[in-house]
Design a binder for these strands. Structure first.
Lengths: 161, 161
DNA sequence: CTAACATAGTGGACGTGTCATCTATTCCCA
DNA sequence: TGGGAATAGATGACACGTCCACTATGTTAG
């Protein structure tokens, strides 16, 4: 095992603060939605993704891709949402393996109720605290970290016997 | 319901990218630990917190505070770790409600095995990609977001009947 | 054409995290 | 000092997310 550099003070500060921020932020967002609406944070994200489409429908694998979820997670979550009447599943004629996820009237109503409070909270706890430069800096960092992750990913698929 | 400003393009870019980064980063970190060691990411953080103390022990509520966890989460997680022999629980004489969480030899061994790979992954996927300015910027942002969260928190406790 | 492979989606098992609730103890102040 | 409030911790119920294995359908190369 070669020598491993532990983090410098500067690195540690950034890494710790980021972890804490994300944990607390997600917690608050989830809590706000749970308190002020009947939607969980994942529910909310699914419904937003669906209403971004003119017909309010997405193939399950597209939904997973848009949200950055694994397909299994999307399947489980959509199943839960279907049982609560927030979305419906419909078969797909082009590809008979496939399924569409469609937002219901009830889903639209609950999203419309929840959205203002959620957006206000994102502003209050995050966006409104930051300058334009800080927002850009965050986006730059996050995008380069993501690009690096994606670049590494195909390595696994390339591994063939 | 007053009018709510949805996010500008710049704000949305930062917010979305940050969410994605954190989700993917946590996933990779968890996956790396699961693959290369017998520890989960939460396990790892508990053991690090304990070894930061000279005697390898912390009161349960202190552990929760250090990690930024709710006490219930700490209690559940420590129970799971105790059953796997990574930590022990010991009664506290000063405060008979209390309990100490103590790292075991086995816990120390597994942490020592897991640490190099974990740190290397944090470097590879995050720290080493960023400049000093970027690291400082992240830390500044995260700390001000956290300070804002803490500032709001006491409001709830102040609410009395 | 068909055999191998890839992809869409499902479902069970399990670990994780939150909320609400409960007990026991300690703190505090009138 | 006695009694109400705060605190430490445990626990049960439930939602969430991952891994893995599986079915069914589509795609492609020989």
């Amino acid at each position: 095992m070669e020598r491993v550099e532990w983090l410098t003070e500067r690195e540690e500060r950034a890494w710790r603060a980021l972890q804490f921020m994300q944990m607390r932020l997600d917690g608050e967002l989830a809590r706000q939605l749970a308190t002020d609406s009947a939607l969980s944070y994942p529910d909310y994200r699914v419904l937003v993704a669906l209403t971004d489409r003119p017909d309010g429908r997405l193939r399950l694998f597209e939904l997973a891709a848009v949200l950055g979820w694994e397909k299994s997670r999307a399947s489980h979550h959509v199943a839960r949402m279907t049982s609560r009447g927030l979305v419906d599943k419909e078969p797909c004629d082009d590809d008979r393996r496939g399924a569409f996820v469609v937002i219901t009237e009830r889903g639209r109503r609950e999203l419309a109720d929840a959205a203002p409070g959620h957006v206000a909270t994102v502003r209050r706890l995050f966006v409104d605290l930051l300058s334009d430069d800080q927002l850009d800096s965050i986006a730059d960092v996050a995008e380069s970290v993501l690009a690096n992750l994606v670049r590494r990913e195909p390595a696994a698929s390339r591994m063939r016997l």
